[in-house]
């Protein structure tokens, strides 16, 4: 356990609970949301965007249009491969003012840029996803282009543990190893649940770290809700001469007692009034 928290860690911790509140609001107002995975991935996305380890400065102001021409971009790349956990990305991007926070209320409403699976129409988003297993390959393509163009940019991809059942992930692992994509970082959100049960029951991944190591990757393991650990590993990841996998052990439905470890909250139609109040109260306790 970390007894000493840096000011930055404290800031991220507080922010994490504030943004969890946004996610719960979205779960109450929207007709449908993938909440379990969004709550597990949130701290990982927060760390990528707000720890000052990577460069995400370009599109911060709402008034400046997002730079989509890749050759003109200077920011690092972030790719969200399991597109259904986009609410976690949306609340972070809204906090960073990529778009107005008011837009969160329009999540998955007709005409909103915030679709139920992430789309490149959202300022700051490079890649539309939803069909699992494709994001790491796309990220590898970006990383390869940068490597050949001798750019110093990092490409960070977030994948989920359940997503590793897709064969394409393993194709991408071989590829990234072959081309020594040392500026590619794959953060695996290991929340151990998927839509119909635990990942262990549905298709066990067993020793994921060993698998990545055998595929030629550098592997780090962290508690995916411990900002000290996450940021430390992200910093270390930049030093690697090989592609890096950060296996982040997270809690499915993190922070909301009745959602935690319950796969029924993978996909949720709507929170009941009772659930909403209970969740709000739990978050408030953490923000005290």
């Amino acid at each position: 356990m970390n007894l000493f928290f840096s000011p930055q860690t404290k800031k991220l911790q507080k922010l994490s609970w504030q943004l969890r509140q946004d996610l719960i609001d979205m779960s109450y107002y929207a007709g449908h949301i993938h909440i379990g995975g969004s709550l597990s991935a949130l701290d990982l996305i927060l760390s990528v965007y707000l720890s000052d380890i990577f460069n995400f400065s370009q599109n911060k102001r709402m008034r400046s249009p997002p730079v989509v021409d890749a050759s003109k971009r200077t920011d690092d790349n972030f790719i969200l491969s399991p597109g259904h956990t986009c609410p976690a990305l949306y609340v972070v991007l809204a906090y960073l003012k990529y778009f107005s926070k008011v837009e969160l209320k329009n999540y998955n409403k007709m005409g909103s840029i915030l679709q139920g699976h992430v789309s490149k129409d959202v300022p700051g988003v490079l890649y539309s996803s939803g069909s699992l297993g494709q994001g790491l390959s796309f990220a590898s393509g970006l990383a390869l282009a940068d490597k050949l163009d001798k750019k110093s940019r990092y490409t960070i991809c977030l994948t989920s543990d359940g997503e590793h059942q897709e064969g394409q992930i393993w194709e991408a692992l071989m590829f990234a190893n072959k081309y020594k994509l040392n500026k590619l970082i794959n953060i695996v959100d290991c929340n151990k649940y998927q839509i119909n049960g635990s990942t262990q029951d549905i298709m066990p991944l067993d020793d994921l770290a060993a698998k990545y190591i055998h595929f030629g990757w550098t592997v780090k393991e962290v508690n995916g809700h411990d900002f000290n650990q996450i940021t430390k590993m992200l910093k270390l990841a930049k030093q690697s001469d090989r592609p890096v996998c950060i296996i982040a052990h997270t809690t499915f439905g993190k922070g909301i007692s009745f959602m935690q470890y319950d796969y029924n909250f993978h996909s949720l139609d709507r929170l009941t009034d009772f659930q909403y109040k209970k969740a709000q109260k739990e978050i408030k306790n953490h923000l005290k």
């Binding site: 021409d69 890749a70 050759s71 490079l126 890649y127 297993g133 494709q134 994001g135 390959s137 796309f138 990220a139 590898s140 393509g141 970006l142 990383a143 390869l144 282009a145 940068d146 050949l148 163009d149 064969g167 394409q168 194709e171 991408a172 071989m174 590829f175 081309y179």
Partner: peptide, 26 residues
């Protein structure tokens, strides 16, 4: 050789690799 990217017999990966390269202006 730098512009010829061999992915092996893995069409799904190759397709998204191609998309990623294209997104970078290729």
């Amino acid at each position: 050789p730098n512009r010829f990217i061999e992915c092996g017999v893995a069409e799904q990966n190759a397709t998204a690799i191609a998309a990623g390269l294209a997104k970078s202006g290729k």
